[in-house]
Amino acid sequence: MADIQVLVKELVNKYGTKREALIPILQGVVASERYLSSEAMIEIAKELDISAAEVYGTATFYSFLETVPRGKYVIRICRTIVCEMNGKKDVLKILEEILKIKVGETTMDKKFSLLETNCIGWCHQGPAMLINDEVYSQLTSDKVREIIQDYIRNK
């Protein structure tokens, strides 16, 4: 069995084969593979006995269920109003500078993807961003540099 089949099988064993298991399974694949490949979606469709189009249609509704390959660390910077007011644009510029990629892109070494996202619930400490599940708030240029350097060096 291919790795993806093993992974899907494990997730199915954990969550079941009913339709309501779909999103947890998709999340499990994204957590492990960083995105939903064509093979992964087909495998899930087989296990849940639904069409591949249904899997795709559901996945593309949700911004955290990626259907294109992403880096090991997905940076999601909040673009909603208060973060925007508090300097999100500058933070984004710094990120693009350090990572040498634009929003929506992934670094050559597949380590980082840079995305914008809607409100992540840290408006009182904006600008804020998520790196995978970790929150970083009250961002400044210096702080962002430090955070990313730390990821580059230590993770």
Binding site: S51, A52, A53, Y56, G57, T60, F61
Partner: peptide, 27 residues
């Protein structure tokens, strides 16, 4: 058959096939 699905959301919502493959390449 479920060859067609709604995909994306908001202004990106549209009707598509699996991975937006050509109609000839889906079920």
């Amino acid at each position: 058959v479920n060859a067609l699905t709604a995909s994306g959301k908001g202004n990106h919502m549209k009707i598509s096939t699996f991975l937006e493959l050509p109609m000839n390449d889906v079920v």
